[in-house]
Structure formats: C-alpha cells, structure tokens
Design a binder for these strands. Structure first.
Lengths: 188, 188
DNA sequence: TATCAATCTTGACGGTGACAAGATTATATT
DNA sequence: AATATAATCTTGTCACCGTCAAGATTGATA
C-alpha cells in the first residue's frame, strides 16, 4: 500500500478474538460446510486483519483442531448430563450432533485435524470415557460398537441431509427417531 | 505470453480424460481427503492443462458430483451382487465403503454436491431402491433406518480413523465386525 | 474436402493460506 | 512510576487455486 493508513484507535486489540473466531467458524460450518471456511472471512467477520487468526491457531488446521477439541468437551458434558441410562446416553449423542452441527461435522474428520495434538487427544479420550460410562459398561464390545455406530450413523445422515424427504424419517424429529431406533433394535 | 510456445505434437487430445480425472480424484480423496483436492493437481497428474477439467465437469463441484454419481452406481451394483439376504446387504454396504473410500467419502456430503443434478439424484434413488430390496422390505421403517444408520455409522467411523486403536475394534477386519454387529443387534 | 462441434490451451483475475517483519498494547519487574 | 518483556495484531508479500474468456487443435460429419 502507498499511504499506509493506520487503523482506528483502540481497535488494535480485539480482546476476545480466539473464542470469537471459534464461534464464527462453527456457525459457518453449520450453514455452509467446512469446505468453504476461510480464515480471512472469519477475520473480516471479527473485524481484525487477515493474519490475526494465525497468532491464535497457527494455521487453518490448528483452528479446526481447536474447534474439534472444544467439540469433544461439549459432547462429554452432554453425555455426563444424560445420566447413567444407556438409552439416554445414545439419545444425547444425537441431540448433541443436531444442536451443534458446526462442531460435530469436524470432530471425526481426521484429514482436517492435527493428529498429534495433545489437547485434542485428551478431549477425545474424555468423551470416549463418558460413552463407556453407566449402563454401557456391562455390555460386550460388539454391542458398544453397534450402539456408537448406530447413533453416529444416524446423526451423520441427518446432518448431511441424506434423510430429507426419505420415507424412513417422515416428519419425526431426530431425537424421537433415535429413541425409537434404540428401543427397536434391542439394545435396551 | 510473448513466445507462445506450442505443446508437443499429438498430445493435444488426451482421449480418456474424464474417467482419468475421476480415477485420480478418488485416489487423492482416499489418501488425503477431499479438502486438499485440487483441479490443477488432477490436471497435472493427467498431463493436461490446468483448465482442461472444466470442460468435462464445469467446476470443482461438478467433478465431485460426477464422482458421487459414479459412487451410487457402484454401490447399487455391490448391493445387487450381495443377494437378497438382509445381513449380506448390510455387510456389502460396509465392504463398499472400505474398498472405495474415495467414493464413499463424497457421496453423502451435501455441501460438496450439486443439489439439483438429475443424474446424481437418479443414481442415489437407484441405490436407495437396492437398499430396500430383499428381506429388508418386510420390516418397519424404524428397523430399516436403524440398519442403515448402523452400517453407515460404522463405515464412517472406520474410514475417518476413529476406531484406530480402540478396544471396540481390536484386530478384527471391518467386514467381520459388521457381520458381528448385525447379528448381535437383533436385526436378523 | 469443407464445415462444425468437441476437446484442450493460454492467459488473466480475484481470493486464499502462509510467512516475515513491524507496530501496538498488556503485563510483569524493578 | 519507569522500564523491559511478552502477547497481540497489522502490513506486505508470495505461490497456489478456481474460474472465466478467448483461441488453437483435433475429430466427426456431410
């Protein structure tokens, strides 16, 4: 630039940039998917320069890793709050996915995340522990895997829009469908 | 450009570019995910200019839509070949996903595909019909949805690497695990 | 052979992620 | 309070990418 115009006074420090970027990222992903997520767009949305995000997250991968870490924390909380009942835990998994699509769509995408991030690994292990909590513990690994696959698959199909207009999911809301499936499938 | 150097003779037409690009795309996605897929890289790999893919697919979304269309066709074939047995159909779904990761990872990503593509919609409906074929037909929608969710969730978790090193999936290959789950869960 | 459509190339443009270097503000130390 | 130090953010730059427009080459058709 030729004139080197400085920014307005008092706006140099955002003050809450890191969470603001994470929030904006989750919103964008929920609406438009992760593919079109741009660090520069997030920066504009937060009113900071295009390189500001790099300071907090390093790069795009770092931001998504931070978002996934937050996601596993939120999931662990929701599973905890669901109590010990096995079916309620399964339903809580679906409820989490549907009410936090921006987080859910990123947390299992190994190709987007830093595989060696310690905080992500810890958060992931934490939520996995909650999944094994309560009534689930008494069952065999096959049943546990089946239960996880069931709710994970349903949540994924729902968020990807694969069930839109399908006779399999007519009318009912996702939580009800999840509850029905868990009952129907003999996991109780 | 000032010199306008022409290409080598005889290489102007690739001759088989469209399928070559689809193949290269599937391979890249299988190895590195869809996020890093670049039309220009595919073009280089096929030995054509950077704008050649546009002629066959329009844009990036068009290429992924074509790949997804191909994927639903392949899936329909595999489900067909699995015969009428319900459990075999479920296992075939998982086998398709595991042996065609580049295709599977794209086919349900609504955010990457052209929602109004007629050929995609037809291919999708075709495979959905195969899914409802055979022994599945006699069951209620809840059971059908549960079955689809189960195999879809397991395939997704497997391809995303979420089961790597998990005690839930120790050692066994995905097909065996799928067979066990389907039996264990009372869908037979 | 002449015409026409299909296929591919060249060139350009704006947007993006990443990096380096510098400016500004907060925090800790004395 | 004054200073040093760290944290935060900006500016500038570069290569890569998707997309579009215009033109060149080739295959098919008549």
């Amino acid at each position: 630039m030729s004139h080197n115009v400085p920014m307005a006074k008092g706006t140099y420090h955002h003050g809450d940039l890191r969470p603001a970027l994470l929030k904006a990222a989750a919103e964008h992903i929920a609406e438009s998917g992760v593919e079109t997520l741009s660090l520069r767009e997030l920066a504009r949305r937060a009113g900071v320069s295009h390189a500001a995000p790099a300071h907090h997250f390093g790069d795009r991968r770092g931001l998504l890793t931070a978002l996934a870490t937050e996601a596993f924390g939120l999931l662990a909380d929701q599973l905890e709050a669901a109590g010990p009942d096995f079916r309620e835990i399964a339903v809580a998994y679906v409820r989490f996915a549907v009410s936090n699509p921006g987080h859910f769509k990123v947390m299992f995408r190994g190709d987007l995340l830093s595989a060696d991030d310690a905080r992500l690994a810890a958060a992931r292990q934490g939520s996995a522990a909650k999944l094994r909590t309560g009534a689930t513990a008494g069952r065999g690994p096959d049943t546990q895997l089946a239960a996880w696959s069931l709710v994970h698959g349903f949540a994924s199909l729902w968020l990807d829009g694969a069930l839109k207009g399908s006779p399999l999911a007519d009318d009912a809301d996702p939580e009800t469908l999840a509850r029905r499936m868990v009952a129907r499938v003999g996991l109780e």
